[in-house]
Write a protein that binds this DNA or RNA. Structure first.
Lengths: 144, 144
DNA sequence: ATTGGTGCAAAGGATTTGCAGTCTA
DNA sequence: TAGACTGCAAATCCTTTGCACCAAT
């Protein structure tokens, strides 16, 4: 795979500055740092985890800024919100089309590549509605 | 359709007492009332909406009891939790296999019948995991 | 008597908000 | 200097918990 839908390749990732520019987001210190963490590799992080990591080596961003930034990135299409757990939102730095395994025992989230799972027959949308996205979540639990 | 997976038909619904008995749930006043509301028809309700409706004609159940009861019903398989909105859980009184449209503008949740949408190639589950369920959420927004 | 169920209020946790201070063009 | 961004603390909202009371076996 050389790239994804509206994005970049993970093999040869653009700089964070370029990423932010591409999505029309003003590059501030904390936005760059947060993007740095998110786009180090495809991953699923909660706001709390991002907050923790961004401040791991000294204070960089406040809680409010992390929430604001993640919300902004999601609205701008840089990252994807994954809603699988009522208690917190995950942010997925991989925006290519794919789906998820969610382990309800451990809270672990794993990708399902889009080739592994296909939908047949998306029903027509109700009047006056536009498609925003399709989420497929395969919930699993530990079988022991 | 005469019935659904582990359940009952909506054309000829069993009494709430029978429903509770079938799922090994002790029939108390408030559980009966809550079931009454949920199973009046297939629908999607938040805990708050259930609380509101159950107490519409005089106090019947407290907030804690509504939450406890909905959690219990979900664990026992009487209803299905639908997680589409980070801010609240919906409870679906229709437990037959089906999926959902979710309007991110209005918060409205609508069924997609399982015949309208099929999955091809459920990937094999990771080691030591058992399938719990598959949720498909088609997110839509108002196109105006 | 013991077990389970309920109600109330308080606690909890994730997220948002208000607002003052900062930065940058 | 205006407009955008940040930080802190307080506020909010949904949900869970602790604990005393009540009901049924």
């Amino acid at each position: 795979m050389l790239g994804n839908t509206d994005g970049h390749s993970w093999e040869n990732p653009p700089s964070v500055n370029e990423l932010l520019a591409r999505h029309h987001i003003a590059p501030t210190q904390q936005r760059r740092q947060i993007a740095q963490i998110l786009f180090a590799r495809p991953q699923h992080l909660s706001a709390d985890q991002v907050l923790e990591r961004v401040n791991q080596h000294g204070a960089v961003a406040s809680k409010a800024t992390v929430y604001n930034t993640l919300g902004l990135f999601a609205r701008k299409g840089l990252i994807r919100e994954v809603i699988v757990d009522p208690s917190k939102v995950f942010y997925d730095s991989n925006t290519s089309v794919h789906h998820h395994f969610y382990n309800i025992d451990t809270g672990e989230l794993r990708d399902i590549h889009s080739q592994e799972l296909h939908l047949r027959g998306l029903p027509e949308l109700p009047q006056g509605m536009a498609l925003d996205g399709v989420d497929i979540i395969v919930r699993v639990r530990n079988s022991d």
